[in-house]
């Protein structure tokens, strides 16, 4: 078990209890091939979406996973909730091994772990009103017997996500809400079961810029006041820096660097993290210039490069990087990096 001081920008969190521990989590998707391909060789190739990821999240912590599209961050989030079955690895949530659970036990523990999806336009049934959308988890989990009993829960949770007066919103349908309001309903739906852990998969990337801040600040408030832990999955290092206590940077299914947010953003160690920070544009016309970014694009996770997966794009790669894969090693108490020359 890791013991890590959380030195987020938002002050230390008193309780440092580990709520989720992920060890060597791996998810490979087998590739379906035509009959010709099957005859040609016996081995099935796989997409190595998540390939041996380990980390832990504390109670009330905002843990960010940052990476480009195709790095496996979304697959990882879903595998942790067992929405996808892991290929191997260990997921321990509140001292329960999730992988050992059967369907019934899993359903029960899912009251404590929820997910917010990227696209609020697609994650809701357009034929249900807000009341029914939010009451659905309550009914599925048999917390309430009928729609009517759900009223106090829904009223409370809508107030929690700043949709006031709640009565005004309950009877609305998703098409009557703006993007920001829809994402608030999605958060309310995740929150109504009073979870301890929420996977937030790009929760603001589909929203208008002027409403993003509100959603981020709402999630921050929930983690601070209720002790809800968040796994914040994003491609946007700038918003991750704003909300996260710690950040893990993923590249092709692996974590390449991990550490407290401010440290990682100000003094990145891994060449990939450095390039990722350089690539973020600054909204200031007086500070112009595109930083040194890596050449090329992310390779296919079906045939990841040998050795260090970054070596074909890495500016400091040497011979060893092509052959032996660097392990994620601690640099000091808080930080870990997978690079020989960091």
């Amino acid at each position: 078990m890791e013991s890590i001081e959380i030195i987020g920008g938002r002050g230390t969190i008193g309780c440092k209890k580990v709520i989720l521990e992920v060890e060597n989590l791996t998810k490979h998707f087998p590739l379906r091939r035509g009959i010709k391909g099957k005859l040609a060789s016996n081995s099935t190739s796989t997409v190595k979406a998540v390939d041996g990821v380990s980390f832990s999240i504390m109670k009330g912590e905002f843990f960010g996973v940052v990476g480009e599209s195709g790095c496996g961050k979304t697959t990882m989030g879903r595998t942790i909730l067992r929405l996808l079955e892991p290929t191997k690895g260990k997921i321990v949530f509140k001292n329960t091994d999730l992988i050992a659970l059967n369907t019934g036990q899993l359903k029960k523990i899912r009251t404590k772990m929820q997910i917010i999806y990227q696209d609020p336009y697609e994650s809701m049934n357009p034929r249900l009103d807000v009341y029914r959308i939010i009451s659905e988890p309550l009914r599925v989990q048999r917390i309430v017997k009928n729609l009517h009993d759900a009223f106090p829960y829904i009223k409370e949770v809508l107030e929690d996500v700043n949709m006031v007066p709640p009565e005004k919103y309950m009877t609305r349908y998703p098409y009557e809400l703006s993007g920001g309001e829809r994402q608030r309903v999605a958060i309310a739906r995740a929150l109504v079961l009073k979870p301890d852990f929420i996977v937030a998969d790009e929760p603001v990337s589909m929203l208008d810029v002027s409403t993003r801040g509100g959603i981020l600040n709402l999630m921050l408030k929930l983690s601070r006041e209720r002790g809800v832990a968040f796994l914040y999955i994003t491609h946007d290092l700038a918003t991750a820096r704003h909300v996260c206590h710690r950040i893990a940077v993923m590249y092709l299914g692996k974590i390449v660097e991990k550490g407290p947010t401010d440290d990682l953003v100000k003094h990145p160690l891994h060449p990939y993290t450095k390039a990722l920070i350089e690539a973020v544009l600054v909204p200031d016309p007086k500070k112009r210039g595109f930083g040194e970014v890596l050449k090329g694009e992310i390779p296919s996770p079906i045939y990841p490069p040998s050795g260090c997966r970054l070596h074909p794009r890495c500016p400091i790669a040497r011979d060893i990087c092509k052959e032996v894969e660097p392990k994620l090693m601690p640099v000091d108490n808080n930080r870990m990096v997978a690079c020989y020359f960091a």
Partner: peptide
Amino acid sequence: IGLLKSFPNIKAEKAPIISMPGSP
């Protein structure tokens, strides 16, 4: 002014992100 303040700047000191009430 609000729009500019809704953009986090990764190369500057951390400042709060604001959100404007309502929607377009």
